[in-house]
Design a protein around this nucleic acid. Structure first.
Length: 420
DNA sequence: TCTGGGGTCCTAGGACCC
DNA sequence: TCTGGGGTCCTAGGACCC
């Protein structure tokens, strides 16, 4: 049987989440900023029309924002993650198999659904919008890359109800010709420049490119993209989230930090977060890398320094992770230097029930596991409790800034929306 | 003055082994 | 003086994605 993929993508996702709880934001320019209110990472159509680019630093478009009364929000990840869950749950009712590809996108397997895929797509779209308040775009194709392309077309069409189905299309080529090569899934800045230099400017051009040449210039990844454009599927649906291979927790500070005590708090905080994620994944780490980054300093250099170490026994026990990370920090820290960012990368992840115990292990693993279970439980049930390890500090002056965050409407009792 | 965070996969090259 | 061939594993870096 032929494969059929649908790509469902939430429109301007973060902005749409804000709009669900704030009617005032309909039909006006809205943007959402990254951590520390640094960059623009989500824009309403009105904001896009003002020429505000994706990923641009907020300070560069400040006057545009102010002159046009654009509503500006800090990121509210608790809200977005919860809204994402709702969307994904709704989608899962329409397919036996789906892959959650990112916070705002999912691939659905629609093979065997029948002839009228467009109708089925519309049904999905209306249901998601009705149940969650989030508008979505849907593209359908015989490969993931074609579904992505179809989605692109759906997004740029004015008709709000459109679902683009390329499996039904006799003139896929005509559609592909209208897509710029840099808009093809898997073609980024570098590859696009090289392709254009070689005279390939559209998705159609890439589809018809000589595979030997593509292989030479772009390796197997490039060839796969060409095949996918030709309707030969190279990427399967990845089911029930594949286990992570690394876990990274890193943040820029709200301000420059030179005091090692403050740095220690931040690092302990990231280690605690990383440990929690390990346990959520039911994995333990064998390696840890700590990195720190200095502020920009003349002449425009950022110094990045890192230290990797292997644990004697794979672990997901937070106090242990904090200890190791603080030791690593002592090695990296140079007094008199201003730091702007730190982060922890955990790798060599193994299932927690398959930990190879060291002969000289002195920890009571069972006791520590129960302690972590209790801590995680309290944190999940009572996020407002602010339960944390002593090493994470109390006032946390280095904390990331979210000066314009909306309420966490769906995950905090104390921030429920009010009905006037 | 102010530029996010979290991932994956592939490749080339070096170390090492027989 | 001549100086093989094949394989694995690991790592760093590049490119891409959202």
């Amino acid at each position: 049987m032929n494969q059929v993929f649908a790509l469902v993508d939430c429109n301007n996702f973060y902005v749409s989440c804000e709009r669900v709880f704030n009617r005032r934001l309909e039909e006006v320019g809205v943007v959402v900023l990254s951590n520390n209110d640094g960059c623009i990472i989500s824009r309403s159509n009105e904001a896009k029309a003002l020429g505000i680019g994706m990923g641009v630093p907020a300070f560069k478009v400040r006057s545009i924002l102010e002159n046009n009364n654009v509503e500006v929000f800090s990121s509210n990840y608790a809200l977005y993650a919860d809204m994402s869950d709702r969307v994904m749950q709704t989608l899962s009712m329409f397919t036996p198999e789906m892959e959650i590809y990112s916070i705002d996108e999912a691939f659905l397997n629609l093979a065997g659904i029948g002839d009228n895929l467009t109708d089925y797509g519309r049904q999905i779209k209306t249901t998601v919008e009705k149940w969650t308040g989030i508008p979505v775009s849907i593209g359908i194709g015989s490969t993931k890359t074609l579904a992505k392309a179809a989605n692109k077309i759906a997004k740029r069409t004015d008709d709000a109800n459109i679902v683009v189905d390329l499996t039904d299309s006799n003139d896929i080529d005509k559609v592909l010709e209208s897509i710029k090569v840099e808009d093809v899934w898997g073609v980024g800045l570098k590859r696009a420049a090289k392709l254009r230099y070689a005279g390939v400017e559209t998705a159609l051009g890439l589809k018809n490119a000589d595979t030997n040449r593509i292989k030479r210039e772009f390796g197997v990844v490039g060839v796969r993209t060409v095949y996918e454009l030709r309707g030969i599927s190279c990427y399967r649906l990845a089911q029930n989230p594949p286990t992570k291979k690394t876990i990274m927790v890193s943040r820029s500070f709200g301000r420059a930090v030179d005091d090692i005590e403050e740095l220690k708090e931040a690092v302990a905080c990231y280690a605690a977060r990383a440990g929690q994620e390990l346990r959520e994944e039911k994995t333990a780490a064998n390696f840890m890398t700590l990195f720190v980054m200095t502020t920009h300093s003349r002449p425009y250099r950022r110094i990045f320094n890192s230290d990797t170490l292997g644990f004697p026994t794979a672990t997901n026990y937070t106090p242990e992770l904090i200890n190791y990370s603080l030791n690593a920090l002592e090695r990296l820290y140079r007094s008199g230097t201003c730091y702007k960012k730190a982060g922890i990368i955990l790798s060599g992840l193994v299932p927690e029930n398959k930990i190879q115990l060291s002969l000289f292990d002195e920890f009571d693993r069972d006791k520590s596991r129960r302690l972590m279970q209790t801590v995680d439980y309290i944190k999940n049930m009572m996020p407002e409790s602010n339960l944390r390890w002593a090493a994470e500090g109390l006032s946390q002056p280095w904390q990331v800034k979210f000066s314009r965050r909306s309420h966490r409407y769906t995950t905090r009792w104390d921030e429920l929306p009010e009905v006037a």
